[in-house]
């Protein structure tokens, strides 16, 4: 817990700064959600972009493209080091895959790619998600992964037909679906709240 505490000691005042991995995918949709909530964002393409972040989002996209990009840019070690120091991280779909044991190894899970099938089996569904009040979450799954294995430190927050699709480990949150595409702000708020970064509700731009 001390690592988490040190990472949460922000030295800069003003709205939190959340990095969004911008190698490929729907990173701009995440930025729109975060701006609407009142936090600042920075697109992350190279290690220098990671300096001074309060949290990091790994967006949806193609995980093979992101993996190759992470390797090309030398981002894997800096990302693992930040995770070890307790930087809060939030992955959606390909971002969930990037966080798993077989990729960055930040989440103690195995994400099975395209587990729900090809694009014809992409779907929308609504369900309750532990820790997110206000009724069912409407979720969009696109060639989505599910969690096929997870360690004891991982909490499953929601499942579809018995397959975990939302997991949390400390201040790392991963979803198989895309709240950034449905305008569902509660998941981004939930993450920022886990990260201790949620702006005051009265905030107006």
């Amino acid at each position: 817990m001390s690592a988490e505490a040190s990472a949460s000691q922000r030295t800069v005042s003003g709205p939190p700064l959340v990095g969004v991995l911008a190698l490929q995918g729907d990173f701009e949709a995440h930025e729109r959600m975060l701006h609407a909530i009142g936090v600042r964002t920075r697109q992350v393409r190279v290690p220098a972009d990671l300096d001074g972040l309060d949290a990091l989002v790994l967006p949806g996209g193609e995980s093979t493209v992101m993996s190759l990009g992470v390797a090309r840019e030398g981002l894997a070690e800096p990302l693992r080091a930040l995770a070890a120091r307790g930087l809060p991280m939030f992955g959606t779909c390909a971002g969930m895959i990037m966080l798993d044991r077989e990729h960055l190894g930040i989440l103690d899970v195995v994400a099975e790619r395209n587990a729900f099938g090809r694009q014809l089996h992409s779907f929308e569904a609504s369900f309750e998600l532990d820790g997110v009040p206000g009724g069912p979450v409407h979720a969009i799954f696109i060639r989505a992964p599910w969690i096929s294995e997870y360690g004891p430190g991982v909490s499953v927050l929601a499942a579809v037909d018995g397959h975990p699709v939302a997991v949390r480990q400390g201040r790392v949150l991963a979803l198989s679906f895309h709240p950034e595409l449905t305008g569902e702000e509660r998941l981004h708020r939930f993450f920022l709240s886990l990260a201790g970064l949620l702006p005051e509700p009265a905030k107006e731009d």
Partner: peptide, 14 residues
């Protein structure tokens, strides 16, 4: 239509 247009969102920047 959301899942159809959503896959294109995933391809962005690619």
């Amino acid at each position: 239509f959301t899942t159809k247009a959503g896959l294109a969102e995933m391809l962005k920047g690619g």
